Amino acid sequence: MKLDILIKNGRVVDPERAIFLDQSVGVAGNRIVDLQSVDNPEAETVIDAAGCLVLPGLIDFHAHVFHGGTAISVNPDVIGLPNGVTGVVDAGSSGWVNYGLFRNSVINTAQTRIKSYLNVVNVGLSTLGGGPTGYLENTNPANFNVEKIARTVNEHRDNILGLKLRYSQDIARGRHFSGDPFFATVELARQLNTGLCVHVTDSRLPADELITHFQADDIFAHCFHGTGHAILQANGELFPDIKAARDRGVIFDCSNGVAHFDFAVARKAMEQGFNPDIISTDLTLRNSLRTDKVFSLPFIMSKYLNMGMSLFDVVRAVTTTPARLMKMQGEAGTLASGAFADIAIVKLRQEKVVFEDTRGERLTGDHYLDNCATISNGQIVYRRQRF
């Protein structure tokens, strides 16, 4: 059997299979090949990954990629693929009004694998943009078009993972809503038997009260923010209800962003064994490739490495866990035989690197992950001549 691509001499890191070994990876078509069943494999293209880590293609579980449909969104192929990101979940950039456009113009045409949460706001985040021309979305439940939301979810269950709500004080302050947007969204998600992703930075309810309404696989987004109601009590201990929520399967996503990460909160939580289930960027046009607060997914991964999280746990949080939540376990987020050939070849470089949180506190690290090559669906879409 002749392979299309053979990656040799690299260290494979695949949490799905609990593998951390020096071994080769073969690709035929758009799938990973079991090399144990191939005698003397030959390949059209051989990549020497000596000194590199060979990872499943990275998945950024919280980003905004309705490129061309919202002012804040990025092009997932341009921003993600050179950084080893082969899969993305859009965090509610579109609502039922413009989801069809999002699906047809971005999701169906991108090289990157994209799944999404549907915003309960009719037009999603299309009103955001900053400056005098942008304004916050209207989350008044009186404006939720339940029938249209239900129809959109039911027609696109292969792609829509659940409903998205931004539940911040600045969105609701001073407005006379018909009811609480969070409770209305939770009720609708349960009626539709779909998931839930909630932006909780500066939420209207305390974290220990808010979390009691989350179920297994619901997403508590921006879990390490330090604005308003955080996940820590005044004494620095995690709220018992937060720990109980993890035990019952609620997913805590760091979804970093420029306004949603606080070193003090993250350190105290991680000292108590509370690492994020998912590491993601909350990429927007404002923060992608522009700031030491976000920049890229490998950059955020590197921050957690320098904060003491193990390489295996970091990789799991951008591969195995998000792939399962995307309903792609065994197909994405792994280098197992038969999986889609989505691969990131990265180098762990020993150099000074600086990370910054929302408040301007900095952490100086001494190592970072540098993407050297990306294979997406069996195609080499990014590769340096030398690693």
Rank of each mutant, 00 (worst) to 15 (best):
V25T: 09
G51W: 09
S37M: 14
V97E: 03
S73N: 04
E147N: 04
I59Y: 13
N75E: 14
G69C: 09
S116T: 05
G100R: 11
R113W: 00
N83A: 13
S105N: 15
D90N: 02
E16D: 12
V123R: 07
G29V: 00
N83T: 11
P132Y: 10
L58V: 02
W96N: 03
G10H: 03
L35A: 07
V88N: 04
E137Y: 10
P56Y: 04
Q23K: 13
P76I: 05
V74L: 10
I114L: 01
P41E: 08
S93G: 09
G10K: 06
H67Y: 14
D34C: 11
E42Y: 14
G10I: 06
D60C: 06
P76G: 01
I47T: 06
I5H: 01
L125S: 11
G131Q: 12
V97D: 00
A28D: 06
N40T: 06
I79F: 09
I59R: 07
L125C: 13
N145F: 03
L118M: 07
L35T: 07
V27P: 07
H62L: 02
Q23N: 08
V78F: 12
R31H: 12
D34F: 15
H67A: 04
G80F: 04
V12S: 04
F102R: 00
N119Y: 02
G87M: 11
I59F: 03
S24K: 15
N122L: 08
S37E: 14
I47S: 06
V89F: 00
G29A: 10
A50S: 13
R113T: 03
I32V: 10
T139H: 02
A50Q: 14
G51N: 07
F61L: 13
I5L: 01
Q23F: 10
I47F: 13
G10M: 06
T45Q: 10
G10Q: 02
H62R: 08
E42L: 13
I114H: 03
E137K: 07
T127P: 13
N140V: 07
N104E: 10
L136E: 09
G134D: 01
K8A: 07
V13N: 01
I19M: 14
V13T: 00
G68D: 02
G129R: 12
P76Q: 12
S93P: 11
A63V: 03
T127S: 13
K8N: 12
F61E: 00
L58W: 03
R11D: 08
V121C: 08
P132N: 15
V121I: 13
P15H: 06
R31M: 00
S73D: 04
V120I: 01
E137M: 08
V54Y: 11
G51F: 11
V46I: 04
G57Q: 06
R31T: 08
F144T: 06
D22G: 10
I7V: 03
N108Q: 01
P76K: 06
D60V: 04
V12F: 01
A71Q: 12
G95N: 08
L118T: 02
P15Y: 01
L55V: 14
G100F: 12
V121G: 05
T133F: 15
L81D: 11
Y117G: 04
G92L: 10
N75A: 05
V54Q: 11
R17K: 11
A50H: 15
E137L: 15
V65P: 00
